[in-house]
Amino acid sequence: MVVTMRLSTVILPIYRWHDEGREVWRRAEELGFHAAYTYDHLAWRTFRDGPWFGAVPTLTAAAAATERLRLGTLVTSPNFRHPVTLAKDLITLDDVSGGRITLGIGAGGNGFDATTLLRADEEPWAPRERADHFEEFVPLLDRLLREPSVTQEGRFYSANEARNIPGCVQRPRLPFAVAATGPRGLRLAARHGQAWVTTGDPKLYESGTPEQSVAALRGQITRLGAACQEAGRDVAELDKILLTGFTPGRPLQSLDAFVDFAGRHFDLGFTEIVVHWPVPDSDFALPPEVFEQIATEALAQLR
């Protein structure tokens, strides 16, 4: 089997559709990206006090504005989603896009929008609670996207004759890209994922080195392989996606820097690298000409 590297982008949902949004998503397709994703948050980091639109409506509009580009979330989480309503949205998105949707899904974290739906006397979920919710969320969502009618009662999520007809355009359902680094999440990726997503080791972002990051990612892939073996799957069946912007170093400072970065991570086993669409005056600021050069020339230099 010949494995090739794919290059994708993540477009923050910050653009008014008729001012810039439509053209940004169309430009992503013109540049030849494999996929364009967006974050599924209610608010996020330094963007909390500025424009921030919903992921599902944004992707629906992007599906209508593009023809070939794969679309998806990086990532959706149980922080404010329920499997039953999410399944209905995803089936609709998959239909509108003609089968171009990938669901990036993760356990979520604290901060930003994780407490938006909580009462004043409620505490945010601890890491174990997030993992508990995620462990129930993913298998139920899997069933909802595969089966025309689902009834299931769980500790956190239930479905009572939840109907999803006609189901996904992609069969047996649209692909899951599961974000995980811990043992429970990796087991979910092995059992239910068509891809696995990581941002690297967050402990290394501020003070680590690129070499330490590569070693940490190698360890994550090794643990993913062990989880796949336990689940009776070949780890090679899963695409391995690295979302950049959260590892040490500056891989986007130039085309040469990115080609070197992508080559080292391709050697680790990654099959897709995702770069943020440039946002001026933010952590994702980048000269447009450098970004477009990376988009159009980097993969050719890796072959």
Results as ranks from 00 to 15, higher is better:
243 L>H: 11
247 T>D: 07
227 A>F: 08
283 D>A: 15
224 L>V: 07
252 L>E: 12
233 R>C: 01
290 V>T: 14
211 E>Q: 08
270 F>C: 10
221 I>D: 00
222 T>G: 06
262 A>Y: 11
267 D>F: 02
217 L>A: 09
235 V>F: 03
262 A>T: 07
256 D>P: 04
272 E>A: 05
261 F>S: 05
254 S>G: 07
279 V>M: 12
224 L>E: 04
233 R>N: 02
232 G>C: 05
216 A>K: 01
212 Q>P: 05
214 V>M: 02
252 L>C: 05
241 I>N: 11
261 F>Y: 15
232 G>A: 11
236 A>Q: 13
257 A>F: 11
212 Q>I: 04
224 L>Q: 05
237 E>C: 06
258 F>G: 09
240 K>S: 05
289 E>N: 10
287 P>C: 10
270 F>Y: 15
211 E>A: 04
265 H>K: 07
214 V>W: 01
229 Q>F: 00
282 S>L: 12
226 A>W: 05
221 I>S: 00
222 T>P: 01
257 A>C: 13
276 H>E: 14
254 S>L: 07
283 D>Y: 15
242 L>P: 02
271 T>P: 01
286 L>I: 09
220 Q>F: 07
247 T>W: 01
280 P>H: 11
290 V>Q: 12
249 G>M: 05
240 K>Q: 10
237 E>V: 00
212 Q>C: 04
237 E>Q: 12
271 T>M: 09
223 R>D: 10
269 G>H: 10
219 G>L: 00
228 C>I: 06
219 G>N: 07
237 E>K: 07
282 S>G: 15
226 A>F: 05
210 P>Y: 00
260 D>K: 14
230 E>G: 04
211 E>F: 01
263 G>Y: 14
272 E>M: 12
224 L>A: 01
234 D>S: 15
265 H>I: 01
254 S>A: 14
269 G>N: 08
212 Q>H: 04
240 K>Y: 01
239 D>S: 10
247 T>I: 05
286 L>R: 11
272 E>P: 02
245 G>L: 08
243 L>Q: 15
257 A>T: 12
237 E>D: 05
284 F>P: 08
235 V>I: 09
214 V>T: 10
225 G>H: 06
257 A>I: 08
280 P>T: 13
213 S>M: 09
271 T>R: 13
242 L>A: 03
256 D>A: 15
251 P>K: 08
228 C>T: 10
